[in-house]
């Protein structure tokens, strides 16, 4: 494995996997059916009920 190969790999693969990950995250975040779960999570920490659920 030469230095040039490593540099080439970093510059190509690195770019595409970061773009792919970003797209994946955006899809997960904006997936319509996830919205309800997120809204619930945001509100649930405010609950005053301070003991574990049975």
């Amino acid at each position: 494995m030469t230095h040039d190969f490593l540099v080439g790999f970093s510059k190509s693969f690195g770019l595409f996997y970061l773009i792919a990950l970003s797209i994946g995250v955006l899809i997960y975040t904006y997936w319509p059916s996830n919205k309800k779960r997120f809204d619930y999570a945001a509100k649930s920490v405010l609950s005053e009920d301070d003991k574990p659920w049975a």
Binding site: R37, S44, P52
Partner: peptide
């Protein structure tokens, strides 16, 4: 017991 793992 909470299904979703809160972002914190």
């Amino acid at each position: 017991k909470e299904p979703h793992i809160y972002v914190a």
